[in-house]
Design a protein around this nucleic acid. Structure first.
Lengths: 168, 168
DNA sequence: AGAATTTATTTTAGGCTTAAAATATCTATC
DNA sequence: GATAGATATTTTAAGCCTAAAATAAATTCT
């Protein structure tokens, strides 16, 4: 004996299925694995081709955009990671000779970090290849599909941010 | 003096812009931050409400789906993480009394892991709330938009996987 | 059966990450 | 100028994660 499906509007949907979030959970899972697949490959290639980790690449990307350099605090904000995290990454990149750390002349607490000449050359080479990898991985999407995804992911991010704000 | 735009098919597109992957890079960045926002909040709430980490939750989710339990190797495959990683997670969950580790009766190398009764109760409670959080974060997306995202993300994943296969 | 190979797991060494405490310096205020 | 609070950074303790080596048991081959 089958039940007839009842057409639902947005309002009644929630009332009908108070604890069912199947599609949203599927979407979350797919978003996650999609990002995992792409990121895993970027990590692998960075390591294989340039013997560098993704976090160090990301840090260098920030510095490449700001040639005059920035403080550790600024870096930590832009990368959206903790201060202590940046301290360690900077240590290792300085040791590799890819970036340069100098005490600020106006604030003795602060340090200014910058790409070295070698770091800049190295980063530019990596960035070009990285662009190709990404282009390659998204190659089967049409321009139209890319734009749709950009739009819907922006909407998703906004929706999530609102939910987060509500919850605090 | 403006140049007239030339209509491009998929073939010529690559030839015209050999090193330009702007939209793809934007899409990658957006995918990344989108996932970061949602995941960050899930981690935060798991920690705050249940004092549990996301990797441990994920491991328990695998076990909840397979009541008869599974070996560490199976777990590591399903979670797509390394063997050594699973060893540590299992250690800590056993210590918390949420899962149970027993030597396999047919293979003395292997161990079978299962949720304990308490672990199952605890996981089910968490999973219900987690579903609500996710539903909440995706609340502004229509059913239609969710379906579009599901479809396009599946296509993205397939495209990335092909590129990865090509590269090896 | 004995030897070689494969498989399941753990260990090791190293890097990433965070929250919270500690340190050093700066700024504002009295 | 002394003091109190704010800010920049580092340190610490703990967990997550991987690749590669080590261990132990099973399987396959002769």
């Amino acid at each position: 004996m089958e039940e007839r499906p009842i057409p639902l509007d947005a309002e009644t949907k929630v009332a009908e299925r108070p604890h069912d979030h199947k599609d949203e959970l599927r979407l979350w899972l797919r978003l996650f694995t999609c990002k995992e697949v792409v990121e895993g490959e970027v990590r692998r290639r960075l390591r294989e081709r340039f013997n560098l980790t993704l976090p160090r690449f990301d840090l260098m990307a920030q510095l490449d955009r700001t040639p005059k350099g920035m403080t550790l605090g600024e870096l930590s904000q832009r990368m959206m990671v903790s201060n202590g995290n940046v301290t360690g990454l900077v240590d290792r990149l300085v040791e590799q000779g890819l970036i340069d750390r100098q005490p600020s002349r106006i604030d003795r607490r602060a340090q200014i970090v910058r790409l070295t000449a070698e770091g800049r050359r190295f980063f530019r080479a990596m960035a070009r290849e990285n662009g190709d990898w990404i282009g390659d991985m998204f190659a089967e999407l049409s321009q139209n599909e890319i734009e749709t995804l950009l739009r819907l992911l922006a909407k998703t991010k906004a929706s999530a941010r609102k939910a987060i704000a509500r919850a605090r």
